[in-house]
Amino acid sequence: MSRSTHADPAAGALAVATRGLTKRYGRETALDGVDLRVPKGAVYVLVGANGAGKSTLFKVLMNLERANDGTAEVFGMDTAARGPEVRAQVGYVPEHQHHRYGWMTSGRLLRHVAAYYPAWDAAYADHLGRALGLRLDRRVGAGSKGESRRLQLVMALAHRPPLLLLDEPTDGLDPVVRRRTLALLAEHLADTPTTVLMSTHQIYEMESLADHVGVLNEGRLAAQMPRDELQRTVRRYRVAVPDGWEAPPDLHVAGMRRSRGGRELQCTLVGEERDVTARLALAGAEVSEVTPLGLEDAALAFLPEEVSA
């Protein structure tokens, strides 16, 4: 068996690429024809409601679940056919801890994981552990949820993998530790050429780190684009409209609120500002104010009303 790992050179600039990825659990569809594109070196934030399919996507990439249809590739390698090689490139923080090594000390568990990753940097693991306040001689099971989260982060980052798959990485951490964790992640990105694919409920936290956004809604990818593009094309418009005005069908309306009199609307619209303003004007509406949205609001614009309201 060849010892070197070769990626498919035709993979180009994509760290993660899925094509029509579909995964069903019985009658539930967790992923429905997902075409994920994560460019190399990107920090890609996956957004979506609980049960939208985010964790399933990670599991398919790690070959912990097998897709019903479609393909998934990491650095050009099929995740189903070359699972171990793919996993050697990944630092994975799962949604829930699945090991039962509660009786091991944190230090011992780190050494255990280190044995599986030839690229493990023990000094860096030490640095990360200290920065996150890990107590290495404490038994894993005796720690809090936050402590086990931090341990998982160290396990994922210490071997400087080319790809980080982080499923709710700051979940269970208090605000101070959350900020420290993200600062550590920023440092890690500065030191190591890494692609990050992470899912989060705290979108606002990731605003400054993310440069790509994907919105997953009931298993379908509702939107996927660079963050700058998202913020440029999703804005809140305050418009003055005549009575009984309805939005023209060619306008992508993500949310709308009417004032009491019905003559002023606030709507979230998707499209280049100039284009949208022109269309509104054509339809008889006058734009009085355009507000750009934060990442969270912009991403939520692609989720159904009940969720984003």
Partner: peptide
């Protein structure tokens, strides 16, 4: 340094 500022601001180093 890029690293320092990225860490301080919690911003993507590429930014």
């Amino acid at each position: 340094s890029v690293r320092e500022l990225a860490s301080e601001l919690v911003v993507n180093p590429r930014t």
